[in-house]
Design a binder for these strands. Sequence first.
DNA 1: TCACGGAATG
DNA 2: GCATTCCGTG
Length: 424
Amino acid sequence: MNVSDLMMSSRTTSPLLHQQQQPQSANSIDSTITLWQFLLELLQQEQNGDIIEWTRGADGEFRLIDAEAVARKWGQRKAKPHMNYDKLSRALRYYYEKNIIKKVIGKKFVYRFVTTDAHAMAPSSEYCTPPEMKMCFVKDEKDITHEIPSFLSLPPPTHQRTTDFSTLSLLGTDSPNTAHSVSTPSPTDSVCSPSSSVASSATPSTSSPIEDTRSRKRSLSPSTPSATATQASMSITFTTLATTPSSSSSSLTTTAAPPPPKKGMKPNPLNLTATSNFCVPPPISPLLMLQQHQNSPLFQTQIGQLYAITAANALASAGLYGPQMSPLLTSQSPFRSPLTTPKNLGGLGGGDGRTPGTNGESQVFQFPPVSAFQSTNPLLNTFTNLISPMAPFMMPSQSSTSFKFPSSTDSLKTPTVPIKMPTL
DNA sequence: TCACGGAATG
DNA sequence: GCATTCCGTG
């Protein structure tokens, strides 16, 4: 199966994508659509190129060429005849808090869809944030010829981070038949409690040009991670994309004797506080953390068209901690509301756009371009080549852990991920 | 003029 | 919850 097939198949699984294939008229009333969806829709339709455009599609950055015209269309869609840019922009500003859209400071009418950053996704940022992550999304095969709308975002360094993670995540490579998810334990079992994450992520970081002023309003409840949890555990669940997220076909738990999940506790794949079992407080080196990146609107709506590859800079650190800890992970259901993301966006990723800064560019974290870790056009390659960054981790010859990526031929089978835990 | 966020409201 | 509407401020 090639990328094209993959995309086509994925489209059929996505209501949103289906909707995009049959775009609603900007004039028709749809009270359910949200603004960011509407904007994405406009951006995807060439006929709107005179009122809205991607300025740096690779970064999710777009500009309202004719803001009032966009607002009028928005008003038509929502049956709000008095809609104008002033009101529309107020709605956009609410997105700042939700980490869906941010303002590109210094550029008039320029906004940016926010890619997922570790802090948005992982409230337990202090110990659960991978040191570095590279991620690229490929929007569409034909678009690759001019620009890859790669949502590349690099979480800034965290001073508070005292641990080094070997993290490698492959995201969004949901083949039509297979998706992969982390089956997470309950947040109540979390080592990295939300409170500690607030404390850490809301700590003003001098390294970050982004600072959410609102986060300072929140009460900080300083706490330290539990020193008792020294065991890392891991559970990877593979699901079929066609099924509901909860109907995972199987799961596998590591040999680290993790506490069994509480009965009746339904893991929330988005709640990365639930990744606590991957979090090991210092001085013991944490082994891994799996992250999902699903709250980006583009990721949400274009997952079938997007290819997301993340590769932490764990290639080296994986060697440190042992190649046995090199899990791969893809997202579970891509069709998940970004607004279900935990609201703890404080700190690095929560800039409100009004932080003193030189310009918008300096306030936007970007992942390196695709070429940073893809020497060739990824879409000219096969699916296998797309995940080539992970190849070293998937080679039994280099790893005591073999990882078999589910293929189209065994899509209904349950891939196994034998994971050997180092002695702590 | 643009951008921001509080507040009230639907 | 997600805007919409209005408004004061910079």
